[in-house]
Amino acid sequence: MIRDFLSNMKPMLLRFGLEYRSLWKAQIMRDLLDRLLYLFAFGFGMGAIIKSMDGLPYLDFLVPGIAASTGVFVMTMAMTYGVWERSTSYKLYSAWLATPLRLPEILMAELIYASLRTLPSILILFVLAGFWLKAIPSFWGAVAAIPVLMLANLAFGAIALCFTVHIHRPLHFAYVNTLWTTPMFLFSGVFFDLQHAPALLYWLSQALPLTHVIGLVRPLMTGQELYLANVIMDLGVLIALFAGGYLYACRVFQKRLLA
């Protein structure tokens, strides 16, 4: 069964690969430039006011957060507007489902493709931040952070799919950005240390998956201490969100496509 699943995903991934070949320039431009902009604007703008954060130079503090937030934006866009366009305007889902492919395989291929798509942007970000700005203290930590970021992307994508399956008008996707993506970007400790935040904000941030990604990636990349209990909890949250979101989205989307 698993072998069928994997062999069915192969043509889907090939299809996305072909799509990427013609879109890669615009994709990297869009994914990367925004991140770099936030990195420079806040690294130098805020960095001029704040010299150190949580015992780190502000730029060192910022880089892992910016890298982790790439996935939030890219995955949410791909899994909301992207899936919507492919399933309604272009009617690609009906076409795919007319072949031996089944919905879980299609959605899994979508998730894997979109999360791999962020890889070039993250690598370029790391190279710039590491070798030019000298803001990544631990090289091997940055290497180890990449699989964590990929897992995080899958989790963000699965959550975004859960929104998509319940949305029936494209206008409402704007609410996903306003009520989910932006708060997550602002309140997950990308820009400031949550230890000193008010208690309410601290507990709110613990409910946002990006906090757990940053909780893993920042210690890895800056060489802060990493506790086993924290690692297990953060990884557990991400895996649970990915699995739960994916299964839920598959079930509801299946019903919706048949209805």
């Binding site: 006011i49 609410y175 602002l186 400031f192 000193h196 935040a197």
Partner: peptide, 28 residues
């Protein structure tokens, strides 16, 4: 007919930025 959506969306986002940036730096 988009009035309601517009009011919610255009006010919520800036207020979040305001709160996050204000709190973040103020805590420092």
């Amino acid at each position: 007919r988009f009035l309601k959506n517009f009011l919610v969306l255009s006010v919520f986002d800036p207020l979040l930025w305001l709160y996050a940036m204000g709190i973040g730096v103020m805590s420092m």
